[in-house]
Computed example of a mutant assay.
Amino acid sequence: MSLHRLRGRHLLWLADYSGEEIRHMVELTLEMKRRYYAGERVIPVLRGRSVGLLFEKPSTRTRISLEVAVAQLGGHTVYMTPSETQLGRGETVADTARVLSRYLDAIVARVKSHKTLEEMARHASIPVINGLSDLTHPLQAIADMATILEKKGRLKGVKLAFVGDGADNVLHSLLLAGSKLGLHITVATPPQIRPDERILSIALKVAEESGGSVEIVSDPYEAVSGADVVYTDVWVSMGQESMAEEKVRLLKPYQVNAKLMEAAGGRAIFMHCLPAKRGQEVTDEVIDGPWSAVWDQAENRLHAHKAVLSLLVP
């Protein structure tokens, strides 16, 4: 595959990328990690490049791993919030995108609404990369697929059980990536909290073509039976505080605890994109226990960001 065809592209969601392209990002993530531990702390493919980080939401992993990733690629980051730019005083997203395109080589935006990303991409002449939206979190999914490949030695045929909030933005990206890479994904969620129908429709169609599968069930024990990976995320995401009580009530039976992990079988690993609400969607004995791949997963965000940026930034 020619790497040049990725150069300069937006990354708003993984529906725009082929399975081959996603696989290349995943494999490059692990190559970046290998080179890092072999002593290549700087791979200067972004020397002289500047990447803007425009964040409407707070962050630990995304912000820090992006800043370090760009530095390890020899580039420079500019961190911005709406209150620190004219966006906070009413300048349009379109005008902001036009101006930032004259200063920067790429924009990574962490936004409240996916529509903001779409508007930015329409008017930017540089790559716009989704650092999280209410709909998807593609950078997380690239790191997650790399973690699964690292731990299991394969992606095609891996059974991934997601237990919890079916409308979760990370789940949406796992569905898009996993279906293109031939995973078998089972989502255990209450009937009231299903994945976005557009994303589910794409994932179901693509899974048929890749040899994977996508299934939605209500029983978490059914979902995890024979799973290679058990994955969960917080039940109440940023901006959902008004519905917290109702979501916690619905999702209480979907806690990932030792009993559920034992039901998955001996080969299962546990994954969580973090931050975790310990005692809610996951117990300490799981996230800190022998099943947990969470800390390797978190580290792989750094290497995934290096892979994606090195491919997309012109």
Rank of each mutant, 00 (worst) to 15 (best):
L54E: 01
R41E: 14
R110A: 07
D284K: 14
A207M: 08
G289R: 08
N130V: 03
N300L: 11
I199C: 05
L260A: 09
A203T: 02
A143L: 09
H123M: 07
G39T: 04
V26A: 07
A207R: 10
E241H: 06
L11D: 01
S213T: 07
A146Q: 00
P220H: 09
R49L: 13
A223C: 09
S113W: 12
V42W: 02
V286S: 08
H303Q: 03
E222L: 14
G8V: 02
S310M: 08
A207P: 03
R301M: 05
V282P: 12
W295N: 08
D95G: 11
H24R: 15
P82F: 08
R23P: 11
S101T: 00
Y103T: 09
T147S: 07
Y36T: 08
A298I: 09
A71F: 12
D16V: 05
I64M: 11
R198D: 11
Y79A: 08
Q192Y: 03
E118M: 11
P138V: 10
P138C: 09
A258P: 11
P275T: 04
G182E: 01
T85F: 05
P290G: 13
H10L: 00
V70R: 00
M80R: 10
D288I: 11
E222M: 10
H172K: 07
S201L: 12
A124H: 00
N130I: 03
R194E: 13
Q255V: 15
S310L: 09
R63Y: 08
V51I: 13
P191S: 13
V68L: 11
P82V: 08
L14S: 00
E262D: 13
M32H: 12
P314N: 08
Q86S: 15
P314A: 10
W235L: 09
V128Q: 09
E197T: 14
L311G: 07
A71E: 13
V313E: 01
H114Y: 07
E150C: 10
E208N: 13
S173L: 07
D296S: 11
L100Q: 02
V286C: 06
A106W: 00
S65A: 01
P290N: 12
P127V: 00
G19R: 03
P220K: 12
I22M: 05
L11W: 01
F55C: 04
Q255E: 13
L176A: 12
P290F: 04
A97G: 04
G239C: 11
L135Q: 00
G182S: 07
R9Q: 12
S310Y: 02
V163E: 06
D228G: 10
K247S: 09
A124Y: 01
L66R: 04
V294F: 14
V187D: 11
S237Q: 07
S133D: 01
M120A: 12
K306P: 04
E262H: 13
S101A: 03
D105A: 05
N300S: 06
R198K: 15
A109Y: 11
H172I: 08
E21I: 13
D168C: 15
Y17P: 04
V26T: 03
L160N: 02
L30Y: 00
Y231F: 15
Y17G: 11
E31I: 07
V248H: 14
Y103E: 02
I269H: 06
G39M: 06
V187Q: 12
N257I: 01
I269T: 06
Q86K: 14
T85I: 09
S18P: 06
